[in-house]
């Protein structure tokens, strides 16, 4: 099957003169079927790339809203195996690129090769790995090359020039620029550090650099879109899904992407 990659979607957005919009949703919250419906809804409302998060027992990079959602999913019996049906369910119904964001131990436990193979078969584009740095990613570099998957590593405001360079070199698709030293969560303003992180990633040769952490409003998207190739929204969408279900998450996606495109 021909899979749609994040790089293709970012390139297409760029051709339209806008940043790509990337939406995070946790798998199995409130259930697997709703995850698929919510993903399709955001894709129909201007989202280019969807990241599905795998619920994990020890999510050290997540703030309260996402923690509560993923903890609830685990309490309701979410199993890692379900991720492949969810990815398949989304890729078969929309033309967004579909990524998975995952802490590394669940992948390690299944086996990096097996996870990668099944993920690619389901139509997934690549993995975003918040607690895996390229230094430890030997097995993943191998498996991602074998199954042609995108590797999205993170760079942070604290990253040294040398680490940015190394991380950009190991990444494919795009580089995830962490806007602020902290965990996921909506913030009223997006840190000014983000622009510096994006500039560093571009300077190190990243074709596409996208910004996440703290983004919750259309004005953030416009502000960041002025210098970044894509904008990642998580917590605000999860809160909308929690409070208003699929219609609310679709409406927020429309707002974030700009009414002209809704």
């Amino acid at each position: 099957m021909s899979r749609i990659t994040s790089a293709q979607k970012i390139a297409a957005a760029k051709a339209e003169g806008r940043p790509a919009l990337i939406a995070y949703l946790p798998a199995g919250f409130p259930d697997a079927a709703t995850t698929i419906e919510a993903a399709v809804a955001v894709a129909e409302n201007g989202v280019d790339i969807i990241e599905i998060g795998i619920p994990y027992s020890d999510p050290v990079m997540d703030g309260e809203v996402i923690q509560q959602a993923t903890t609830a999913a685990l309490a309701d019996g979410f199993k890692v195996n379900q991720i492949f049906e969810i990815i398949q369910g989304i890729t078969s119904r929309c033309d967004a690129a579909v990524m998975v964001m995952t802490y590394w131990n669940p992948v390690l436990r299944m086996g990096v090769d097996e996870f990668s193979r099944r993920f690619a078969e389901a139509g997934g584009a690549g993995l975003i790995t918040p607690d895996l740095v390229p230094d430890e990613a030997g097995e993943w570099l191998e498996a991602s090359a074998k199954y042609d998957l995108e590797r999205v590593f993170l760079v942070a405001p604290s990253s040294s020039a040398q680490r940015v360079e190394m991380t950009v070199a190991a990444s494919s698709g795009f580089v995830y620029c962490v806007s602020v030293m902290g965990v996921t969560g909506a913030r009223s303003e997006v840190s000014s550090a983000a622009q510096g992180v994006v500039a560093a990633a571009h300077a190190a040769g990243a074709e596409y650099a996208c910004v996440g952490l703290g983004v919750s409003k259309r004005e953030h998207v416009e502000e960041i879109g002025a210098y970044a190739d894509g904008v990642i929204v998580g917590t605000a969408l999860v809160a909308a899904l929690r409070d208003g279900g699929v219609p609310a998450v679709g409406a927020l996606a429309a707002e974030l992407s700009g009414s002209a495109r809704a």
């Binding site: 590394w104 607690d131 740095v133 430890e136 993170l154 942070a156 990253s159």
Partner: peptide, 14 residues
Amino acid sequence: GGRWMPESLMAAMD
């Protein structure tokens, strides 16, 4: 062993 942790903390660990 190793460092299986977020990039944000790498500078502090270094």
